[in-house]
């Protein structure tokens, strides 16, 4: 088994699996990573097919530049949520699969007949100018020089176009730190909103990650203590989860009764204090604070 064959049979299944994974992944990031895998494998296939220049370009341009651009945009727009896999167009998925099967059959039938002889190989062609890169250069800069120049115009146009498309006019004056501070104080004066920083995430014996919310004195979660994207993806640990081990310990120490998770997070009320009153006051202060996350003006979001 030659190196070429080895590379093919090793990598081809990986590529197909990667491609299928790209289509099926629920998260865009996973799709991008699958695609990266396919592309790197493809680069190696190029190398096996006597195309060292394309091998390099594939890795540098595609995997290095284009896919990073994809990841960057995914970060900008897509990380918030998973894609729903419920199909909204009637019959779309069925037809797509049927057509895909038909297409692959036709393509295989057509392409399978395209080359009837064995491969000539590029050894001779590469040797003509002293190497693959030199041979490509001879073609690109002599025979296809006009096309090459046209692509330069295309790239310039694309760059300018991307800038034009993503450029936004500033419609309101930029708010600097000073004005923000003034606004906070004004908000405190007018609505009583807390001017200080939001609460920090919770720190417990078992958890200190950013997705661990702080608990309020009544045992409920202070939602402002975790960042908004995590909140929106409902990745916040629940009080039950956080308090379950402690409740278990209490139960073990008590020894005579089973731990009751439903009441585990509830602290015994102190004498003379109403739990409901205390909780209501805290909830109110949370509400005023929660609105702070929304005062970011639109142009600062992305």
């Amino acid at each position: 088994m030659s190196g070429q064959e080895l590379a093919f049979w090793l990598l081809a299944p990986v590529m197909v699996l990667g491609a299928v994974g790209m289509v099926l992944a629920r998260k865009a990031v996973h799709s991008a990573l699958c695609l990266a895998a396919v592309m790197i494998c493809l680069a190696i296939q190029y190398a096996a097919l006597d195309a060292p220049f394309l091998f390099a370009v594939q890795i540098i341009v595609y995997t290095g530049a284009i896919l990073m651009l994809f990841l960057f945009v995914v970060m900008l727009v897509g990380v918030d949520s998973d894609d729903s896999f419920v199909e909204t167009l009637r019959g779309q998925r069925v037809f797509a699969v049927v057509l895909g099967i038909g297409l692959v059959v036709l393509l295989v039938a057509g392409l399978g007949n395209a080359v009837v002889t064995g491969p000539v190989g590029l050894t001779e062609a590469n040797a003509q100018y002293g190497g693959n890169v030199q041979g490509l250069a001879a073609l690109v800069f002599v025979r296809w020089v006009w096309a090459f120049e046209a692509t330069s115009a295309l790239l310039i146009t694309a760059a300018v176009g991307a800038m034009v498309l993503t450029h936004r006019e500033r419609l309101v004056p930029r708010r600097d730190q000073r004005t923000r501070a003034a606004e906070r104080i004004r908000a405190y004066a007018e609505t009583g909103r807390h001017p200080g920083p939001m609460p920090t995430p919770g720190v417990f014996a078992r958890h200190n990650a950013v997705d661990t919310p702080a608990l309020l004195p009544d045992g409920s979660v202070a939602e402002d203590s975790v960042s908004a994207p995590l909140r929106s993806r409902s990745r916040i640990r629940t009080p039950e989860e956080l308090l379950a081990p402690m409740a278990q310990r209490h139960a073990e120490i008590a020894g005579d009764r089973q731990p009751d998770p439903a009441v585990g997070h509830q602290r015994d009320p102190r004498p003379g204090e109403s739990v409901a009153e205390q909780g209501a006051a805290l909830k109110a202060s949370q509400r005023t604070q929660r609105t702070r996350g929304e005062d970011l003006s639109d142009e600062e979001r992305i």
């Binding site: 790209m22 199909e87 057509l99 692959v104 393509l107 399978g112």
Partner: peptide, 18 residues
């Protein structure tokens, strides 16, 4: 290689539709 290419292409096409 051509068959591999055809499969990748079709997966891409189906993915685009789905």
């Amino acid at each position: 290689y051509l068959v591999l290419s055809a499969m990748l292409f079709t997966i891409g096409a189906v993915g685009f539709m789905v």
